[in-house]
Design a protein around this nucleic acid. Structure first.
Length: 988
RNA sequence: GGGCCCGUAGCUUAGUCUGGUUGGAGCGCUCGGCUGAUAACCGAGAGGCCCGGAGUUCAAAUCUCCGCGGGCCCA
């Protein structure tokens, strides 16, 4: 009875994979693989939580298989690797999706619809594609615990987020300020930068050159420029560049005695002839006061209407004097804050002027531009008006022009944590390394405070209550604390709108405290994952075992996303880095190099890939494509090639083994032969395997997955399949049992089993299938994924042998080249090959001459010193080929009758083997052969009949073809060396 | 507009950190060969302004600077 199950030559990877998914489910292989390492050293992973309100695309799959590779590898290396899945569930994208479905798009409409109902819809929406995510995750072989995931809307998760924010508050790092955000006045909604980027249009706006009259000077004006006249109502300052040259010019055309100041480089903005009166640097203007254009809006919180200096002033356009309105520009807001200037907000949240601006009251700001220009003209402060073509953002939903608008917002003072962020970053190992001090490090260097609050509905509510009497703020850090301080019932769900009803008692004045209506930026949610997924500090053990993470990986766009929010939260709360190794992946582009996106309709359907090429092929494609940090131009063709080249070759090596092992009933359990006793070929492949293992482990540890995978691929295709198995085939075909055959079987068996383990984290399906057939008893594992990762045995690495084999292959190549040049096919045996080389190389080749004879089909290999080179060079029959700088090869091309006969017979054998294959004979089936040919053919066959019988498993060879055609007889006519030969075979 | 990354044959890429013979390989193409595991393999050939320009150097795909194209993150 055969020890191994026979296989089909076609692997049918997809079907194998689907079988194994069921098998793993049934056997609970994943759970067991984790469990059996529970006493091992922990290797902590945090899953970057995806949002399941869209379909998973190839980029998500890449992330998942990279995570899987590392986690499987670490598990096999003995680490205890818990793999908790996670879902990111809050945030504006979810709300927008729901709004779309409800056909509404303003905050007012949401409130009319009801926040309670709306948030319910949001909660349902986030798991809309959960099934597709779970299926894709399982199908690709990502082993992660999706039965017990962390979910950011979970009450325990939210409570931990609240706790952490209270820690921030206690440290005095949470403050209220203004943030200038892109805002759609129609939808009454702030837009995320992603949304803003969706609809930029080139539009023509009025641009105005406005004269600001300096105080204490007669008829001296600063000439400023703006493309948004309506923002002039909120003007607080004028900015000049401190070191650029400014000029005071007298306009010749002017009827009045008028003098203007502007940047010298911008003089061509003037329409009139002018005379330069004075030159000075911008900083000479600093602190000069000017008269307001409009006396309407009130200014709070500081000085106003003076000249400041700022580096952001450019001379590319305008006048080099920039109008600054902190209510309407982020840069403006920042610079005013820095210079402790005041703030003026004459526009309401719908984008209309307030009662502070009587002539414009109630007007939409964009519509007011015309009137404002007219007003300025009447007052004589408009120098000129022009059209200005620029790119301006519009609301992607309703098409309204967006306004940049200062809104109240809560901030975390990240600037004050800058040193901590930088110090913690130093403790993190980045791959690729340049991110550490490049993109990420630079970002931390210039870190800004984190605008944490969102005036929205579906999110973790901001846990700050303000006293309606005295204005005192209080941050609630737990449900227990909420209950203790509440004057009314505390809801079981912490979401809006329920939480909005909870009123606290002010400790200072006894007044009612009401919650700030905002929710928290969902990036803060996911940044809290290291502790919130374990409900820390309300439960402590699991967090302590799982912090910091040893490893996280996501795509490069998370640098300022999750990679940052994790570090920011962890630095604020613990002053520790939340992860020690971070692997940043490139993006998946389409086959033309363009990012895949829904709107471009170039997203590849991954389920089609799973059904056509399978998960292993897809995984191998990702692993071998290039450095993980590089973008991948994704093509299904590329995946198919991986299947054909790598998976098929591996399968065929395995198929070859089980086919013959079944015939011979080879049983690996009863054979023990030390490697040292096996032949050079066996020792070579074992040495190569150990060298490979060393290299693979080193590469994975450096996250150079493509290096590891490509080395394995080379090993399988070149070393194992095309050299070891091809060279060793005949050893397996010997019918009777012998020592050499056992060595071959054992060696191939050991290499295949070890390869399964080495490859298991990469292609978990194929390796499992092969392993389950190869390792049939005697161990408790029952899965390759329960095995230890192979470790190299240094004592089996024979570098000298590997070198020799390398030399041998160059000799074979040179010999083949010589044959090809001389026009002698390889099937034609030749008398001799002479290798001219030094003693050291002779030593290397000596033990391998048998292989050389066989590969070059020559009877003798002669090794000689360089001194005899000229002897052979002089003989015409010896064709010369240079192998390397001190090695030359001579091929004796002389033929005699015996060699020609042998060549003829080898051709005939080759034809007969082909015919056996044509009619699908069993490898062991015996045949009888009939032939017709001329006398030379007949003589050759007669002389070498034994050889033919042995090679083709023939019991009889007879001249003459049967007169009657028969279905049992297969006849074919061949041309061999211009001779016609007819051959017939039938089963004996 | 700024920062970071990428650009090598028709395609996928090695080599770039650490400058040094004639820039390797696979797929595809042409010709020849081999083959009872292989849809595989072997040999030969065609196919490279190493994105462009300037600089450093005895020497540049490699180092520096300036552009161009693509990607990402910001503005």
């Amino acid at each position: 009875m055969a020890y191994f199950k026979s296989e089909t030559q076609r692997a049918n990877f997809v079907q194998r994979e689907e079988e194994l998914l069921e098998h793993w489910d049934k056997e609970r292989t994943f759970e067991r693989s984790v469990e059996r390492r529970k006493d091992g050293e922990p290797f902590v992973f945090v899953e970057g939580p995806p949002t399941a309100n869209g379909l998973p695309h190839p980029g998500h799959v890449l992330t998942r298989v990279v995570k899987d590779l590392v986690l499987r590898y670490k598990t096999m290396r003995g680490f205890y690797v818990k793999r908790k899945a996670g879902w990111d569930t809050h945030g504006l994208p979810v709300e927008i999706e729901v709004e779309k479905n409800l056909g509404i798009n303003t905050k007012g409409e949401i409130e009319d619809y009801g926040i309670e109902k709306f948030n319910k819809k949001c909660k349902q929406s986030v798991f809309r594609y959960e099934k597709e995510w779970v299926n894709a995750t399982k199908r690709v072989g990502f082993w992660v615990d999706m039965d017990d995931p962390y979910i950011t809307f979970d009450i325990n998760y939210m409570e931990s987020v609240w706790w952490s924010l209270k820690e921030v508050w206690k440290k005095g790092l949470l403050y209220k300020g203004h943030k200038v955000v892109p805002f759609c006045p129609r939808c009454e909604t702030t837009l995320s930068s992603h949304e803003v980027a969706q609809d930029y249009r080139d539009v023509e706006d009025p641009s105005v050159y406005v004269k600001f009259k300096l105080k204490q000077e007669q008829d001296l004006y600063l000439l400023a420029w703006t493309t948004t006249p309506w923002t002039l109502l909120g003007n607080i300052a004028l900015a000049v560049h401190p070191s650029n040259t400014y000029v005071k010019v007298k306009l010749n055309a002017s009827t009045k005695d008028e003098t203007l100041i502007l940047a010298e480089a911008r003089l061509d903005a003037l329409d009139d002839d002018y005379e330069i009166l004075e030159r000075f640097e911008g900083k000479a203007l600093e602190d000069l006061e000017y008269e307001r254009l409009f006396e309407y809006a009130k200014v709070e919180g500081g000085e106003a209407h003076k000249v400041i200096t700022a580096e952001f002033v450019t001379l590319d356009e305008g006048t080099g004097i920039v109008h600054v309105a902190p209510a309407f520009g982020e840069v403006d807001y920042e610079v005013c804050r820095e210079k402790k200037l005041g703030f003026s907000q004459p526009v309401n949240s719908a984008g209309h002027f307030t009662h502070e601006v009587p002539p414009l009251e109630g007007m939409f700001v964009k519509d007011a531009d015309r009137l404002i220009i007219e007003l300025m003209e009447q007052r004589g402060v408009l120098y000129k008006e022009a059209k200005y073509l620029h790119s301006y953002p519009f609301c992607w939903r309703c098409g309204s022009p967006l306004l940049y608008y200062a809104r109240e917002s809560w901030f975390i003072a990240m600037k004050s944590l800058r040193d901590g962020l930088l110090a913690n970053n130093e403790k993190i190992n980045w791959y690729p390394a340049h991110l550490k001090h490049g993109r990420f490090g630079n970002f931390l260097d210039g870190i800004e405070d984190w605008a944490l609050s969102r005036e929205r509905f579906w999110g973790t509510p901001l846990n700050i209550w303000l006293c309606t009497e005295c204005g005192k703020d209080f941050c609630v850090g737990s449900i227990e604390e909420l209950k203790a301080r509440a004057t009314n019932t505390v809801p079981s769900d912490l979401h809006r709108p329920y939480i909005d009803e909870v009123v606290l008692r002010c400790e200072d004045c006894g007044g009612d405290m009401r919650r700030v209506k905002d929710v928290i930026d969902c990036w803060y949610d996911s940044g809290s994952a290291p502790f919130a997924q374990w409900h820390y500090p309300f439960e402590t053990d699991k967090f302590k075992q799982n912090f910091p993470a040893d490893f996280i990986t996501e795509a490069i766009d998370q640098t300022r996303g999750w990679f940052y929010s994790l570090l920011a939260v962890s630095t604020a709360i613990f002053d520790e880095p939340p992860y020690l190794n971070v692997l940043s992946l490139g993006h998946i582009l389409d086959d033309k190099g363009v990012k895949m996106s829904k709107s471009k309709r170039n997203v590849v359907d991954i389920t089609a890939i799973f059904n056509n090429e399978g998960a292993d092929a897809l995984r191998w494609y990702f692993y071998t494509a290039g450095p993980l940090s590089d973008d991948i131009r994704f093509s299904e063709q590329g995946i198919l090639e991986k299947q054909k080249k790598f998976l098929n070759t591996f399968w065929n090596s395995y198929f070859f083994f089980v086919t013959y092992a079944a015939i011979d009933e080879f049983n690996p359990e009863v054979k023990v032969i030390p490697v040292a006793k096996r032949n050079a070929m066996d020792r070579w492949i074992i040495s190569r395997w150990n060298t490979l293992t060393t290299e693979v482990i080193a590469a994975i540890e450096r996250f150079e997955v493509h290096v590891a995978a490509r080395k394995i691929e080379e090993f399988v295709v070149n070393d194992l399949s095309n050299w070891y198995i091809r060279r060793s085939r005949r050893r397996f075909w010997v019918p009777e049992e012998n020592f050499d055959k056992d060595c071959a079987y054992l060696t191939l068996y050991e290499v295949l089993v070890s390869l399964c383990k080495l490859l298991a984290p990469f292609v978990p399906f194929l390796t499992e299938h092969v392993y389950l057939n190869l390792v049939r008893s005697g161990d408790e594992h029952k899965s390759v994924h329960l095995c230890d990762y192979p470790s190299p045995d240094e004592s089996l690495i024979d570098t000298a042998l590997e070198d020799s084999m390398l030399l041998l292959s160059t000799l074979v190549e040179a010999g083949r080249r010589t044959r090809s040049d001389a026009g002698i096919k390889i099937r034609q045996p030749l008398r001799e090959v002479v290798i001219v080389c030094n003693a050291e190389k002779q030593d290397k080749v000596t033990s391998l001459t048998a292989i050389l004879k066989d590969e070059l089909n020559v009877r003798e290999v002669t090794l000689v010193e360089a001194s005899s080179k000229s002897e052979f060079a002089a003989v015409e029959e010896y064709k010369q080929a240079d192998v390397d700088e001190d090695t030359t090869l001579f091929l004796n091309t002389g033929l005699d009758k015996e060699l020609i006969e042998e060549g003829m017979v080898r051709d005939i054998v080759r034809r007969i083997q082909g015919m056996r294959k044509d009619i699908d004979l069993e490898y062991t089936a015996k045949i009888s052969i009939m032939y017709e040919g001329d006398d030379a053919v007949k003589e050759a066959i007669t002389n070498l009949a034994d050889y033919i019988r042995e090679e083709t498993l023939a019991v009889a060879i007879n001249e003459g073809l049967p007169s009657v055609e028969s279905e049992q007889i297969y006849v074919k006519t061949w041309k061999i060396d211009k001779k016609e030969v007819r051959l017939a075979i039938k089963t004996a």
